[in-house]
Amino acid sequence: MPTVVRCWRCQDEHIPQVFCPACEALQPLPPDIDYFTVFGLARDPVLDEQALANTYYDLSRQLHPDLHQTGTAEEQEASLQNTAVLNRAYRTLRDPVQRGQYWLELNGEQLGKENNKVPPDLALLVFEVQEQLAAVREAQSAGTDDARAGLKSELTQVWDDLDDRMQGLQQKLAANFSKWRQADDASDLLSGLKRVLSEMAYLRTLTRDVEKALSIF
């Protein structure tokens, strides 16, 4: 049920929107607004990323503090807060992994603690990468230049592999989302989605660790 809000300027009552339909004053967005609603989208994890970007630019043009500098204190504050919400919403929705996780949260599901567990499909890979990272740490203190160079190329290879795997998962995620949209009963698809998302989240952490190790060479 959409709640009704009151314009700070003309007291008009309306459902939450960026500009008051009566007096066109900039309105603060409700604090609990969900990110899909900010963009005027249905709560659907499958979205057109280019259209999302265009909407983001359009909304920025309406909301950004730079364009409300001459407004009242209320308008300046609303502009600042709304743009902060818009920026956070865009950052979350443009990234498939964050979007998926956010969508799960909206649907009362969370990756939550499973996030810390190594997904079974990744167990072997994680073990190998951790070993290599340990070797890098050792070489840093004791190893020869040759050993370091060797490790560097190995690590670069690892990074490439992780990257390939991530791309594969992204396709899988997109496919899962589409299936979810078409299915009448989505409950069995949910667990599949969660698995892919948690794999992606884990892979991302692993990639970051490898990048950190690579940056010291």
């Binding site: 503090p65 600042l80 807060q81 743009t83 902060a84 919400v85 920026n87 956070r88 865009y90 950052r91």
Partner: peptide, 8 residues
Amino acid sequence: NTTIPASV
């Protein structure tokens, strides 16, 4: 590299 204004 988060776009500003940004809040959390």
